[in-house]
């Protein structure tokens, strides 16, 4: 086999050492550190991006919590305002209703007073008319009439009918 008897074996091995040595030297001092730095840069960039994303998420979460709190607060405030407005309106409506009632009852009272004066007037007029009618009837029947007796009799009769 040429692998065991070739005259060039030794020089081949010497050249192997030279070439492999140079290969190792160039790789270890120039080429591989460059590749390593690219990979490290990428790893650093990725972890930085992840860190930034995590920070952004935290910020977003905080903002969301803040928003929720603000919403709850606004809702509570709105509800309080609504309740206050409702109470206010109720109170106002009640006051107005009371004022209206008072005014109406006053008017009713006044009307009743007017009615009773009118009735009283009518009642007293009834007395006069009845007295005159009775006097005329009595004088037609018996020729004369005692005005005082007739008047008292009419008054009694009116009173007994409960004209009030």
């Amino acid at each position: 086999m040429p692998q065991f008897q070739d005259p060039l074996l030794l020089s081949q091995a010497v050249w192997l050492l030279i070439i492999f040595g140079a290969f190792y030297f160039v790789l270890s001092s120039f080429v591989l550190p460059r590749v390593g730095s690219v990979l490290e840069d990428r790893a650093a960039r990725i972890s930085a991006d992840l860190e930034a994303a995590r920070a952004s998420k935290q910020q977003a979460d905080a903002a969301l919590a803040e928003l929720n709190a603000a919403t709850a607060k606004a809702r509570a405030e709105a509800q309080a305002a609504i309740a206050a407005a409702v109470a206010d309106a109720n109170a106002k409506a009640q006051a107005e209703a009371e004022a209206l009632n008072a005014k109406l009852s006053q008017q009713i009272d006044a009307a009743e007073a007017r009615i009773s004066t009118a009735r009283d007037a009518a009642m007293s007029a009834i007395g006069t008319v009845a007295t005159e009618t009775a006097t005329a009837l009595v004088s037609k029947l018996i020729g004369h009439a005692d005005a005082n007796a007739v008047q008292s009799a009419v008054g009694r009769s009116l009173a007994s009918r409960g004209a009030a």
Binding site: S11, Q12, W15, L16, F23, V31, R34, V35, V38
Partner: peptide, 30 residues
């Protein structure tokens, strides 16, 4: 200098690897 075709192929191999690792990484792309 008794440089054989075997040694020449060693040189080819070395050049191919170094070219791959330097030209390939030349862009340093992310």
């Amino acid at each position: 200098v008794n440089f054989t075709q075997s040694n020449l192929h060693m040189l080819y191999a070395v050049i191919i690897v170094l070219a791959l690792m330097t030209i390939g990484m030349g862009a340093r792309a992310l």
